[in-house]
């Protein structure tokens, strides 16, 4: 039982207005969020529908963001994601354990099916996966990078250098820094024969951006806060 302080008695506990999607989240969070991917996957394989909904809820939007790198045809992407889930639901018992994470498993499967589908259809805008489009990188968070005159120039140069990176390097960089995949997962998704190639692809990309990145000015703000918090907690 929670005890309330006398002075907040006149506050009504606020009613939460959540969308259907958030509801799934808040309901399943308690039970599944603390579980490891392997455990959630095992539950799903046993036919646990909550585990399935949890997985769907976690990754639907991420899969759409990912799929759009291959094709801008939203209906096609929805179909592929739908097929992907129908497929793994049907075969759930025979699927076996996931090697790394549920996310990289789903990404890899989606990549395959989208490419396959594009190869079949003739008028798709991104028919040929080996073209140079897709996986364009954007520097989004303005808050952490100072908006000075000098910086605007450096950022322009950085964007320019990023756009000149080969697609494979952009793809690997996004997997590593944005999606948070390990080199093992990148190796699997990009079908490299050796893990070194994943590492090299990422670091080669970074190397080309080095000069511009060195010139960037950033805010120290959040790290300083972190430091203060740290010293308050641990040096007292």
């Amino acid at each position: 039982m929670k005890m309330k302080k006398a002075d907040d008695i006149d506050h009504h506990p606020e009613a939460k207005h959540l969308s259907a999607r958030d509801d799934y989240k808040s309901y399943f969070n308690n039970q599944l969020q603390s579980k490891k991917d392997q455990e959630v996957w095992a539950l799903f394989q046993k036919g646990d529908e909550e585990a399935f909904l949890y997985i769907y809820n976690q990754y639907f939007y991420e899969l759409m963001d990912y799929g759009i790198q291959f094709s801008k045809d939203i209906e096609l992407l929805k179909d592929c994601i739908q097929d992907l889930f129908i497929n793994i639901r049907r075969k759930r018992e025979s699927l076996g354990k996931i090697s790394y994470s549920i996310k990289s498993y789903l990404f890899k499967s989606l990549k395959r099916s989208v490419i396959k589908r594009l190869a079949k259809s003739k008028n798709a805008p991104y028919k040929d996966y080996n073209n140079t489009e897709g996986f364009e990188i954007q520097l989004s968070t303005e808050t952490e990078i100072i908006n000075s005159q000098l910086n605007a120039e450096v950022k322009f140069q950085l964007k320019n250098s990023i756009s000149k990176l080969p697609k494979k390097q952009r793809e690997a960089i996004l997997y590593y820094y944005y999606e948070g995949f390990t080199y093992e997962e990148i190796t699997s998704i990009m079908e490299f024969s050796r893990i070194e190639y994943a590492r090299i692809t990422v670091s080669n990309g970074v190397k080309k951006l080095r000069r511009e990145m060195e010139l960037l000015k950033t805010k120290l703000f959040d790290i300083v806060i972190l430091l203060i918090a740290y010293s308050v907690f641990f040096t007292a």
């Binding site: 939007y61 759409m64 963001d65 799929g67 759009i68 790198q69 801008k72 939203i74 992407l77 897709g134 996986f135 364009e136 990188i137 954007q138 520097l139 989004s140 968070t141 303005e142 952490e144 990078i145 960089i173 996004l174 820094y177 944005y178 990145m213 960037l216 950033t218 805010k219 120290l220 959040d222 790290i223 300083v224 430091l227």
Partner: peptide, 21 residues
Amino acid sequence: KLEVVAKAKAIISSLDYQEKY
């Protein structure tokens, strides 16, 4: 090392897909 760490952190967390759903 604060500055270089902050910069590395800022760069990593600002990378994003240009095209999103």
